[in-house]
Design a protein around this nucleic acid. Structure first.
Length: 616
DNA sequence: TAATTTGCATC
DNA sequence: ATCGGCT
DNA sequence: AGCCGATGATGCAAATTA
């Protein structure tokens, strides 16, 4: 009842070319996986080099294979010691959860969309309606003067044209033609929703990127003030992760709001949910079967985004009746929604757009859009593909400062080619952490890096943390997902402040926080760590101690180290902190390209974890 | 006040 | 965190 | 190889309900 994982990964933050980290640890959290697989142990490698020479997979026995068989023996011993009830429990829950939950893969949805069982009071978003005239779109000024019904008809017709235009190749695309609102006017929510809908029917990344790019170009051209909101909604975010704004809305709340907005019962909605497998579709179906009263106003991007933020704000304010207030906000939006707006409104609230568009594609599209928009752009002459390059720049910048507000404004004022200068790392804002990527076997790694020196270090089974210590002495701790965890680890703040060398005035430390028994000097399993309180923790209340296993430093004494090589950063790390067992230790590491040596290192790591976990 | 539901974080 | 599918 | 989405186990915290 124990699983084992081993990971390799080369380091983060771009420029560490020739280095590879091998991480090892035992992971009780993977028990379920292990049990359901033929092998009692789950053993994997994680690798993510920044540049990857091609190599062929070799099937010859590798260090890991050898290690694996050793480990299996040990495990056989430990399994007998382990209590079995837990095993059964997980098994049971697994099987009971197996309940056949409707294949809600893209299939079911497309089928449903194609079924014209909804009465066509209005053109359905999935179908193209005949177009009468094409030129209407320009009279946007008139829109405000003409009766609403007319406005709406026109919108729908021209919205369709808009999509046709947006699907064009970027080179032939004209932002003016795609827009069906006036220059400087608020961007209609319908515009974004139509793009979402078109994207959902497209599986090719290139095509999706192009559509998003065209959409962004249109917004930049017509209503640049709305660009930030458009980007946030496209990313399905409400705010930068580190700001801690949460919608606090889940399926249960959505079902309630939906039921009220449609005048039906919860049970009815739930039933439909089971049938359709998607609350967005339920919303769409329910809405279009509603007798629509006159809408107060056309939904705009800004309105939707602002409302989302209002919903999120409630979390920080009074807690009473917060759900009720949220529900009313949602209802208001739903009532004003037409066409397929309800569908995507709901999906946005669920934070599950599932459209095939996510962060990376959005960033690429943002870069592309900037290239097209900046006519005067002095794109460096030595560049083959400006588009690719721009996408790369935007992604790079985002990884260092994941705040759309800043990136968008820097993009609009300074342009892509200056972006890295106008928008860069800022202490106090968490850097996107480099994550481990699984690979099949060690042979891959050995082959790839045979002629390079690389480095290995333990991967401890705890919680990733990025500790920012600012010049003014304030400290923030961020999680793997850039959530602010500061209030959860006052002990870590104390430790880090005490153990930094006195000459150090500021830093950003990348580390793993691991539950630790200081009496016995043992690392404790993740399970224990997870029982720590999470909010407003007071030192004296702490039950589970934590040891900081530091493995990288990204910023030191006012200077970003993101461009440095890993070995240089390690030097900085070792020079900037004092180790103290049980409080702060450096991740155990070796540097070598010798297979045998690495294998020994791995075995040692496994042994140390193994004993510390079971000989308590 | 105590139990239950809901949301959401970690892995 | 793992997994599989798509391009 | 990169990106996206679907999925699981577990545990705290807040809101609701009994």
């Amino acid at each position: 009842m124990l699983s084992l994982r081993s990971c390799c990964y080369s380091l983060t933050h771009s420029t560490l070319s020739h280095h590879l980290k091998i991480y090892l640890n035992l992971s009780p959290s993977l028990c379920a996986v292990s049990l359901s697989s033929p092998k009692p142990f789950s053993f994997k490698l994680i690798l993510s080099p920044n540049h990857t020479p091609k190599s062929t997979m070799s099937s010859r026995p590798s260090a890991f294979d050898v290690l694996m068989s050793n480990a299996s023996k040990k495990k056989a011993q430990s399994q007998t010691q382990q209590s079995s009830p837990k095993k059964r429990k997980t098994l049971e829950s697994n099987t009971t959860n197996q309940n056949p939950r409707k294949t809600q893969t893209p299939n079911s949805e497309t089928q449903l969309l194609n079924e014209p069982k909804l009465d066509g009071k209005e053109p359905n978003c999935s179908n193209s309606k005949p177009i009468e005239e094409t030129r209407v779109a320009n009279g946007s000024k008139d829109d405000q003067q003409t009766p609403k019904l007319d406005v709406k008809k026109r919108r729908l017709i021209s919205a369709h044209d808009s999509i046709v235009e947006l699907k064009k190749k970027a080179a032939n695309f004209s932002p003016q033609k795609a827009a069906f609102w006036g220059e400087g006017d608020k961007v209609p929510f319908l515009f974004l929703v139509k793009v979402f809908d078109a994207i959902s029917k497209e599986s090719g990344r290139i095509a999706i990127t192009e559509m998003v790019c065209n959409m962004l170009r249109t917004v930049i051209q017509m209503t640049p003030e709305d660009l930030v909101a458009v980007v946030y909604l496209s990313a399905n975010r409400i705010a930068p992760a580190h700001e801690g704004l949460e919608l606090g809305i889940g399926d249960a709340s959505i079902i309630k709001a939906l039921a009220e907005a449609c005048g039906t019962k919860d049970t009815q909605i739930k039933k439909q949910y089971k049938e359709l497998g998607d609350l967005g579709l339920v919303a769409k179906a329910s809405r279009s079967s509603q007798p629509l009263m006159r809408k107060p106003e056309v939904l705009t991007i800004a309105k939707v985004f602002d409302t989302f933020r209002l919903i999120a704000k409630r979390i920080e304010e009074s807690g009473k009746d917060s759900q009720e207030k949220k529900k009313n906000h949602i209802k208001a939006l739903l009532v004003a929604a037409t066409d397929c707006e309800p569908q995507y409104l709901i999906r946005l609230l669920q934070t599950k757009l599932r459209i095939g568009l996510a962060e990376q594609t959005l960033l690429a599209a943002l870069g592309h859009a900037a290239v097209y928009t900046e006519k005067h752009s002095s794109s460096p002459p030595d560049i083959n593909s400006p588009l690719e390059e721009a996408a790369k720049i935007v992604k790079q910048v985002y990884s260092v400062i994941p705040v759309y507000d800043k990136i968008v404004s820097a993009l609009l004022t300074g342009g892509v080619w200056n972006l890295a200068k106008t928008c860069s790392f800022s202490p106090g804002i968490p850097v996107g952490p480099m994550l481990a990527k699984p690979t099949k076997g060690v042979s891959e790694i050995v082959d790839k890096f045979q002629d390079m020196e690389f480095t290995c270090e333990y991967k401890y089974d705890g919680e990733r943390a990025q500790i920012h210590y600012m010049e003014n002495g304030s400290v923030e701790i961020y999680s793997r997902n850039a959530e602010r965890n500061t209030g959860k680890f006052p002990d870590v703040i104390a430790a880090v402040s005490r153990l930094k060398k006195s000459s150090v005035t500021s830093f950003v430390l990348d580390c793993e926080l691991v539950a630790y028994d200081r009496e016995k000097q043992k690392i404790l399993p993740f399970q224990i760590l997870s029982t720590r309180a999470r909010k407003n923790v007071v030192m004296s209340d702490i039950k589970v101690d934590v040891c900081i296993f530091a493995f990288d430093i990204l910023y030191l004494d006012g200077q970003p180290l993101l461009q440095e090589q890993l070995d240089a950063r390690r030097e900085h790390l070792y020079n900037s902190f004092e180790e103290e067992p049980g409080f702060l230790q450096f991740a155990t590491a070796i540097t070598s390209n010798d297979l045998e040596e690495i294998q020994k290192f791995l075995e040692a790591a496994v042994d140390s974890r193994y004993w510390s976990m079971f000989l308590t």
